[in-house]
Write a protein that binds this DNA or RNA. Structure first.
Lengths: 353, 353
DNA sequence: TTGTACGCGTTATCAG
DNA sequence: CTGATAACGCGTACAA
């Protein structure tokens, strides 16, 4: 009852041709008679042939050069995790003949993005992983890569222009909805709830807009009209303005119950609350930055929604590798879970090693 | 600037010996002169040689037979997920020359376990994955496998007797703590909270005992002595007794706030609450069984802690494969995250496909 | 104690 | 259009 593995040679024998011909059929390198082709394809189906990936990798002794176009972690530490994910994937998958070159741009500087993206285009890699945080500016590059048939994978920000190979990340709308639930849960029956963007250019950031929609819709869909939902855009470039803005929000809304920060910057508000010794506010944010972890453990941040940004980097490289080196089909969208992180379970989300 | 891959042949050349000798050193097959050995090992370190797994798999054309000793999903549907995980891993990893044979036992019948475990021992597999839900009865088998140097991986229940290759699953104690937090969160300042085991033989189930400890310690450590924590062991074998037990618990504790079910059986209590039209109780349980998912969506189960049981099966086979076929080091404990699942994020935990 | 030669399944090249 | 054949890197049997 041995389940023999079907090899190309087996197919060739059964079809009365040589392995070379089978190979040409399987890879559509043309120049095969129609009768041979149909016969071979039939046998392939019948025998359920599956290529041996080890042999494939060994045989095609080819190096695929991947480019990772990601923001600078020394400017915004949020981007440290994706970088580590990319590096872990590279080390796990280099067996399959991939090498990743990182192109690091300044997330607060469009020109830097344009510059690095151009470098990627010039380098003519075999595949690209990119965090398209600048929507408008990214589009021409997508067009270029698309025209040159260079597969590219998006992470962090979901866009579907020019048909990316894949998107890796969260469903931003649902993420906002979940934040609404967490902001609402256990907060009594009425009050003010604040949504705040920090240091962001909203109009050019598709994913933040979708988070905001989801958040608002949570309250609408659940008929929670007794809550007063307000929004703010705060910027730490002007630190006194940042504090002043928070001061006046607190003053004008004494019934403030929850604050939802749409990015990984919840720790900035936590610092403010701590300094002013304000307690009893349900603070919700994103991502396991060291500062955020601290404030979760202190009880000042109540919930973090984990975006698994390391996983986003990892899976991005993973998808490119599977597509290019292993010639496997990949999902065009890979939504990662909306993990709820609290003091009690945070340890199991922090990267060991 | 090409990062050339280091092959055995390269090392041999540099050491002035033949590839065969290098191979003998790398695999400790002895019969190598000491000077050759030290020289080769030095070069291996220096050049950071890493074996090419594709070539290895292709070369050693060996089949590793793995045994999966898991409970019957048709008796308790909880075990469907691990089985699917095992099967997915088998399909993902069969490239590396593994084949998994399943040995399915009845989770409510010790004899069935003993029978199947004996079959596993007789089959003399290369590696074993087992859910040791019967503690006492599992030990002699561990001893046997250990003596025969058959690596075995535990999942679902953490035991450390006889040195398993690895444990995959949750930290049960922390899981209980998290349940305490969820049972407490947003429930006012006092009241009764119930912990219930359903259909379980507690004394022989190490993980349930640890969950209970964690749960109790949450309230102790946070000084929540104003809560009245009670416990119950319920059994559906006697269904009217099951209902009667719940009836009397409800009657004698009108201030009941939360119910924590230590297993995947929360749906049974949800059904009861639904039938009796009791609302306002914060019900917490485990795992994304179809029935539980239903009750989360209906709002009767408030929180589920996801134990990622499919992942447990998957990673178990994964660890065995990496250890045996790829000869890679594996972690001796792999704690999976304590995922908090609510109506709003449940979709991202339900298996697609 | 050591070296050599072959096979694993696939791909790529070259000759027909 | 097709068939034969040489890699790819490792493991192993056999010869020296």
């Amino acid at each position: 009852m041995k389940n023999k593995i079907v090899r190309i040679k087996d197919i060739a024998e059964k079809a009365g041709v040589s392995p070379g011909t089978v190979d040409r059929v399987l890879h559509n390198r043309g120049r095969v008679s129609d009768e041979a082709r149909t016969k071979i394809l039939g046998i392939v189906k019948e025998l359920k042939y599956e290529p041996n990936l080890s042999a494939r990798v060994l045989g095609t002794n080819r190096l695929y050069r991947l480019a990772a176009l990601i923001p600078d972690a020394s400017v915004d530490f949020y981007w440290d995790a994706p970088r580590r994910g990319v590096e872990k994937a590279e080390s796990d998958l280099k067996q399959y003949g991939i090498a990743v070159e990182q192109y690091i741009f300044d997330p607060y500087n469009v020109d830097s993005f344009l510059d690095k993206a151009s470098q990627v285009s010039e380098a003519n890699p075999d595949g690209i992983l990119v965090a398209p945080i600048y929507y408008r500016e990214a589009l021409p590059f997508f067009q270029d890569w698309s025209a040159r048939s260079i597969p590219f994978v998006l992470f962090n920000t979901q866009l579907s222009d020019y048909n990316p190979l894949s998107y890796i990340g969260q469903d931003s709308y649902q993420s906002g909805m979940l934040a609404g639930k967490l902001a609402h849960y256990g907060q009594g029956t009425s009050g003010t709830i604040l949504l705040a963007h920090i240091d962001e250019d909203i109009s050019n950031s598709a994913h933040l807009i979708r988070k905001e929609q989801g958040f608002n819709d949570y309250f609408k869909q659940n008929g929670l009209s007794q809550y007063n939902i307000i929004r703010a855009e705060l910027n730490r470039a002007d630190l006194s303005g940042f504090h002043y803005g928070l001061d006046s929000l607190m003053a004008s809304h004494p019934d403030l119950k929850s604050i939802y920060i749409t990015s990984s910057k919840a720790y900035t508000v936590a610092t403010y609350l701590e300094q002013k010794d304000i307690t009893g506010i349900n603070l919700i944010g994103y991502d396991l930055l060291p500062e955020n972890i601290d404030y979760v453990n202190k009880g000042i941040i109540r919930f973090l929604i984990n975006q698994n940004s390391k996983g986003q980097g990892y899976w991005g490289i993973y998808q490119l590798t599977h597509h290019l080196a292993l010639k496997r089909a990949v999902d065009s969208v890979k939504y990662l879970p909306l993990d709820i992180v609290t003091k009690e379970n945070i340890e199991y989300y922090i990267d060991k090693e």
